[in-house]
């Protein structure tokens, strides 16, 4: 695939007060109060700016957003099936390559961004996402991770954490922990086998400047990029809608979520805690984990400990053992 020359260099933002005022994801949507995915959408759209085309696979960021005659997108946007966001984004990018080459469109290649949920990224949408990464399209695939099939009523997805109470994993006497499986790791899926990929990063609504700069870096590279954005969902995770940011921060403080960038084969970490809090601190604020026993919590802690020690994620700071009193 020929790559159109992209000269764009979106500048990185130093402080939160330097964030552009212009909004490209505007009011008019019907997401829940405290919706993490809606917040990250706003930040992504701000960071990307006006020369952008969004592709929106079915999910909350379609259904709760794109009501006919009042969609919140101030840049071109197109619905895709939940299955094919990566493929439709590939087609848009391919069209722009040839149209610009033939002089039928002027200016820079737009930022082509697929805004997919976890289901639309690494479950039913995995094939299309992987193929977009493999083929080297100059496009950005974002997995906004609310850790469930939210729009259909909170069913387990491959990124739903172990021990979650979802409508497909209700805890009961036979299956006391609810969800028994451990989640897929989206960025590692991308990094692991897609040589064309230029930039992969994780982000969180808890750190908006970091999030926006990662969007800009991803859009500045020529070629495919992937962002995995932690986006707490008050409805699905069962917490008070005023606590979205607090929960997002705790995920990082407990090691349930890690902020890093992967570029040219190297990892860089951001906002890494000096000392990790026990996962219990994070779990206890959320109704989806309310049924878990000590044994289940220990199992989740062991999973996080192992992940933090996994290759590619060097941990200099010792992980504190779970505290009994918490």
């Amino acid at each position: 695939m020929a790559v159109a020359v992209k000269t764009q260099n979106l500048p990185l933002i130093k402080k939160i007060r330097n964030i552009p005022k212009e909004e490209y994801y505007v009011p008019g949507h019907r997401t829940c109060a405290g919706c993490g995915p809606a917040l990250q959408y706003k930040l992504v759209a701000k960071a990307a700016g006006p020369n952008t085309v969004f592709l929106g696979p079915t999910g909350c960021m379609y259904v709760a957003n794109a009501s006919y005659l009042c969609t919140p997108y101030a840049v071109p946007w197109m619905h895709t099936q939940i299955t094919n966001g990566g493929a439709v984004a590939s087609g848009v990018e391919a069209a722009y390559q040839v149209l610009i080459r033939k002089g039928k469109r002027e200016g820079e290649l737009p930022n082509v961004i697929c805004m997919a949920g976890d289901g639309g990224s690494v479950d039913i949408g995995l094939q299309a996402m992987s193929a977009m990464m493999y083929r080297g399209h100059d496009a950005l695939f974002i997995c906004y991770d609310n850790e469930a099939y939210a729009n259909t009523g909170i069913q387990t997805s491959p990124t739903t954490p172990y021990g979650s109470n979802t409508t497909f994993t209700p805890p009961g006497p036979v299956i006391p922990e609810g969800k028994k499986l451990f989640p897929k790791d989206p960025p590692q899926l991308v990094i692991g086998g897609h040589p064309a990929v230029k930039y992969v990063a994780t982000a969180s609504v808890a750190f908006p400047v970091d999030l926006m700069n990662k969007v800009r870096k991803a859009l500045n590279v020529q070629g495919p990029a992937f962002l995995h954005i932690h986006a707490p969902c008050p409805k699905g995770w069962k917490f008070n809608e005023s606590k979205t940011i607090e929960i997002a921060k705790l995920a990082i403080q407990t090691g349930m979520w890690n902020l890093y960038e992967w570029e040219n084969g190297e990892y860089k970490y951001q906002h890494k805690p000096k000392e990790y809090k026990p996962v219990r601190e994070y779990l206890k604020l959320q109704g989806r984990f309310a049924h878990l026993s000590e044994a289940h919590i220990a199992k989740q802690q062991a999973f996080v400990d192992a992940k933090l020690k996994a290759p590619g994620i060097p941990v200099a700071i010792p992980i504190s053992p779970p505290r009994a009193e918490a």
Binding site: M1, T83, G91, A94, R105, S130, R135
Partner: peptide
Amino acid sequence: LDAEFVYGEGEHAQLSVVAGASAAGARV
């Protein structure tokens, strides 16, 4: 022929890729 030749990962993707391209303004 000056065209983008995209290797679809399946027929579902074939139709999806050309849908995106057609919506962007290319003959597909």
